[in-house]
Design a binder for these strands. Structure first.
Length: 283
DNA sequence: TCCTATGTTGTATG
DNA sequence: ACATACAACATAGG
């Protein structure tokens, strides 16, 4: 499920574990989610045992958790949820004899006195990585500016679209280096609001369309964070979101039928009455 | 049985 | 070197 707002929601699901030490770590060390995890897993497990979760944040689809492991030692855990990853907390049994038993998809569990912090991911497209030291790892600090930040400018979008001028705009919106956190449903939602056909080449967009795309990208991210990001509540039926997966679904603006096709390698939903392909010269 | 899946990455091709 | 397209990754559910 995880795009920008779903990631933010899952990040906060570990909040009940703040300020309490990790007693034990349960792990499937050979799970694919630990590929290139940043060093020796056993060593990170040793450092994390007894450590205290003191901060977390999300950037796009990435999450970072900071643990204090003694006065001068910090351990960072980076998590990406991939396609099917989830974070949750679970109460641990009061009796020590009923120890927490992770399911096969629960690759990484931080057990505390009162609860377990659980990362699960059946398909294992997600990723867990580790780092140590006072500063966040380089892969984190080099992430692009967030869509909802002031650094996400119309100019930056315009430059990026010109660089990617021969790719369909749908594929370009999925590129995390400029649109961090945008995923398949958000890209479709944005293009539907802009009345831009997902197959339109990025280089064909007029400056007015680029401005609209920039504004609607920010708007969809803000609204998704306010609904899904807070309570996991679905956005209202005025969004494409509520209709896009339903066979025979209707466009909430025009009432006409929606269509689905593969564009940029992903199933794409749009409203043909509202989003029409045009020649570059027509713009 | 076959098809789909809210993601990323490695590789081939232009 | 850069941009683009697509298979591959691994599993569950309709």
């Amino acid at each position: 499920m995880p795009e920008l707002a779903e990631v933010e929601y899952h990040r906060k699901r570990w909040n009940p574990g703040f300020d309490e030490p990790v007693i034990e770590i349960l792990i499937h060390p050979r799970a694919r989610v630990f590929r290139n995890c940043g060093g020796d897993i056993g060593e990170f497990i040793r450092l994390l045992t007894g450590a205290v979760l003191e901060h977390s944040e999300a950037k796009g689809k990435q999450m970072l958790f900071r643990f204090r492991a003694g006065k001068r030692s910090v351990v960072w855990i980076g998590i990406h949820l991939g396609m099917t990853g989830e974070l949750r907390t679970q109460d641990v049994p009061a009796l020590a004899s009923e120890r927490f038993e992770p399911a096969s998809s629960e690759h990484f569990v931080l057990v505390q006195a009162k609860r377990a912090l659980v990362f699960s991911d059946p398909r294992m497209f997600g990723r867990v990585r580790f780092s140590t030291g006072e500063n966040p790892p380089p892969w984190w600090t080099s992430l692009p500016p967030e869509v909802v930040s002031s650094a996400f400018t119309e100019e930056a979008v315009s430059v990026f679209l010109k660089r990617r001028s021969r790719a369909p705009i749908k594929a370009v919106l999925l590129m995390q280096e400029r649109f961090p956190g945008i995923g398949n449903w958000m890209a479709d939602e944005i293009l539907w609001r802009c009345a831009i056909h997902p197959r339109q080449l990025a280089g064909d967009l007029t400056q007015a369309e680029i401005r609209k795309l920039w504004r609607e990208t920010r708007w969809v991210c803000e609204q998704a964070l306010a609904t899904i990001g807070e309570t996991y509540a679905d956005p209202p039926p005025t969004w494409l979101f509520q209709h896009r997966w339903e066979d025979g679904g209707k466009c909430p603006r025009t009432g006409a039928s929606l269509v689905r096709e593969q564009i940029g390698g992903r199933t794409t939903c749009w409203s043909p009455k509202r989003q029409q392909l045009r020649n570059a010269s027509d713009g």
